[in-house]
Amino acid sequence: MLEIKNLHASVEGKEILKGIDLTVNIGEVHAIMGPNGSGKSTLANILAGKPEYSVTEGEVMYEGKDLLAMKPEIRAREGVFLAFQYPVELPGVNNTTFLRTALNESRKYHSQPEVGAGAFLSLLKKKMHLVEMPDTLLSRSVNEGFSGGEKKRNEILQMAVLEPRLAILDETDSGLDIDALRIVANGVNKLKSRDNATIVVTHYQRLLNYIVPDYVHVLYDGRIVKSGGKDLALELEERGYEWVKQEEIAK
């Protein structure tokens, strides 16, 4: 589904990703961990097409197509979804209108009929249930004045509505209380299927108790320096990143 080869990227002339190789197959869950500033969000943003990053080398194939050649909105309509580490506030833009517009853009792209306001509301009700989101957040402006946790939940609600093929969750767990973490993780799990794939960026092993990864990768200084199964997360929790850093230096 996703094949990243020797990806180098920089921002403002500074190289941040220094050769990433990663293959994600359909139906898999990959966790990416790594210290602050190692490039996790940069990787996520590049996959989503954020303009300020420039790819200097390498390629990314998504379902056999050149992902990097697509405009961000096309990537989204092709099923790439990024749950932002810092969701953006859109004052005045109604949350429901926003969600329906987003869904219909995708549907139009795939030559499916648009969903009317009424039908959309009943669909939304179901999805809200999935992330146990209160109704009141729907009539408000997108993320405006939302608490940190509410913003994260809203990201997962969007994901539930858009049903992406490849979901990238960038620290969706940070800022969530214990109950919310469970709810959000359950939501993600329910959305998981054999037809989609998930990349979870996180700092905490705890999330991975709920969303169980098939692979765990450690990103360090712009490279994936270690990959393994779900146990790698436990090991990291125990030994910290120092361990990985020392190994890197030793190399």
Binding site: G49, P51, E73, E89, G92, A102
Partner: peptide
Amino acid sequence: SKIGADQIFYLNQRGISTEDAVRLIVNGYC
């Protein structure tokens, strides 16, 4: 206020084109 590049990107990431993104933000504003 300015329409921020991050707002446009956020909407782009949800499948909404830049023109439509600006429209959504401006209509919300008005």
